[in-house]
């Protein structure tokens, strides 16, 4: 009986992507004036490009901004007043790009069903129609044809052309395109074309300084301040190895995970080992070196 009940009881929330907006404030510690820049850019509907290594808070930042705008904490249009929670919700539609992502995955496609064909809007189209923020994560990963689709959306036209339907959609007022990418410095073939990158306001993300990072770790993981400080220090030390064997530094996210494990009672050294050392590299030599740093910082 109980089982049946469990099955019928809905344990998840399912909503259309247009209805997804950030309801609770995502924790975000600004490192500079990026919040102001984002707000201004949004009011002017200038598309935004977020650059930076993995785990530096790009996605979190977008969520945070979507929340701020959704809550109406800041005016959405030039000359408006802030609505402070009474505004219309602003949807956030996130698409994680991958190498097989084609234009029709973004725009939409016809599906064949019993009655014939049916058009389904892709996430980008739905964002354009609903007037939300469309966030294309790791845009360079997507196929080249996708970048061309977004061009008309990123200039004065603000329109999306759908070849298959033979139609053009002007973006709803609230729509804004935000893309992110990680400029891996040795990636010869995966780079953003200039014709694309010059359509965006670019915000650079890097790891926060030690103090801020400690605060972030403490907040996100709930571990004590001393542990958080040590984790932040570990992060700084490991990032010194970037380009000397490590392709990427330790992300803040990684350190937060370590903090969470520590809070759960896992010993500090072990927590760092499983969430940082082993995660960041497979090279035994570098692992050993990082291990030495861990065992120096954590007793």
């Amino acid at each position: 009986m109980a089982r049946v009940l469990m099955a019928t009881e809905q344990k998840y929330i399912e909503r259309d992507i247009e209805e997804y907006y950030v309801a609770d404030e995502p924790f975000y510690v600004p490192t500079s004036d990026e919040i102001e820049i984002f707000e201004s850019a949004y009011r002017q509907r200038v598309p935004i490009l977020l650059k930076g290594p993995t785990g530096t808070g790009k996605t979190r930042f977008v969520e945070h901004m979507a929340w701020r705008l959704s809550e109406g904490l800041v005016p959405r249009n030039p000359g408006e007043e802030a609505l402070n929670g009474n505004g219309e919700k602003l949807p956030l539609i996130t698409v994680a790009c991958h190498e097989d992502l084609t234009a029709s995955d973004l725009v939409g496609r016809y599906l064949l069903d019993a009655d014939g064909t049916r058009w389904i809007d892709g996430p980008l189209t739905r964002a354009v129609k609903s007037g939300g923020i469309c966030y294309l994560d790791e845009i360079v990963e997507a196929r080249k044809d996708t970048t061309v689709i977004i061009h008309p959306l990123t200039d004065h036209r603000r329109s999306l052309t759908i070849d298959k339907l033979g139609s053009t959609i002007d973006a709803a007022d609230g729509f804004l395109l935000v893309v992110s990418y990680n400029p891996g410095y040795q990636n010869a073939l995966k780079d953003l074309k200039h014709s694309t990158r010059q359509r965006f306001v670019a915000l650079e993300f890097d790891f926060p300084d030690e103090e801020r990072e400690a605060a972030i770790i403490a907040h996100e993981s709930g571990c004590d301040n001393d542990t958080a400080e040590r984790l932040a220090r570990l992060g700084v030390k490991i990032r010194n190895l970037r380009e000397h064997g490590l392709e990427e530094g330790a992300s803040t996210r990684m350190l937060i995970y370590a903090g969470r494990l520590i809070k759960e009672g896992v010993s500090q050294r072990r927590a760092c080992q499983v969430s940082v050392t082993w995660g960041i590299t497979d090279d035994p030599q570098i692992q050993r070196s990082i291990d030495e740093v861990v065992t120096s910082i954590f007793a």
Binding site: K237, I238, N240, L241, H244, Q285, S289, E292, V293
Partner: peptide, 15 residues
């Protein structure tokens, strides 16, 4: 040597 070298690099940020 290599381990120590990398350890030093990590701690100081210099090679």
């Amino acid at each position: 040597r290599e381990v120590i070298q990398m350890y030093c690099l990590a701690l100081t940020g210099h090679i």
